[in-house]
């Protein structure tokens, strides 16, 4: 569902030297404003933004990025279908299992990380890396 009222996803920034219109976001995004509980799952072709928590036993599968504005404790799969550039952002990232494209990771047994603050998981050099979410230019790959 490409919303065509943005002019086919093209936005013109007059301040940027008035050059070519810049293309932003080429995927669909769905906004979910509730907590996903055990047994509930979201599967979406595009990005998923969740305003709420993802509890253990819940599952989020997206072909694009996943953003959780809350606790992410369930299973999350970003870049399903093979997009290695997809990332998972969460206000509190404690997933049961985290998958990006064809990579599957989980927390080591017996270790519980209590990192506070937003984090991002993405693939760097062929491995899933979790780091603190940095605002600013650094967040761009």
């Amino acid at each position: 569902m490409t919303p065509d009222w943005t002019g086919g996803n093209l936005v013109h920034f007059p301040g940027k030297g008035g050059g070519e219109p810049e293309e932003i976001g080429d995927e669909n995004t769905i906004l979910i404003q509730r907590t996903l509980r055990s047994g509930q799952s979201i599967s979406f072709d595009g990005n998923v933004v969740i305003i709420g928590d993802v509890n253990p036993g819940a599952e989020v599968v997206a072909t694009g990025n996943v953003v959780v504005m809350g606790y992410l404790r369930g299973v999350v799969h970003a870049g399903a279908g093979g997009n290695e550039n997809a990332a998972v952002y969460a206000y509190c990232l404690q997933p049961t299992q985290l998958r990006i494209a064809n990579h599957i990771t989980r927390a080591p047994d017996g270790e519980q990380s209590y990192q506070v603050g937003p984090e991002v998981a993405r693939i760097k050099n062929g491995a899933v890396i979790i780091e603190a979410f940095q605002n600013g230019p650094e967040r761009q790959r």
Binding site: G39, P56, G57, V75, T96, Q97, I104, R106, A107, D109
Partner: peptide, 17 residues
């Protein structure tokens, strides 16, 4: 199915694919 627990009791939940 739908209310699985055995994996949690055995501590294997995070391995399920």
């Amino acid at each position: 199915i739908g209310l699985r627990n055995l994996d949690v009791v055995m501590g294997l939940e995070n391995r399920i694919v």
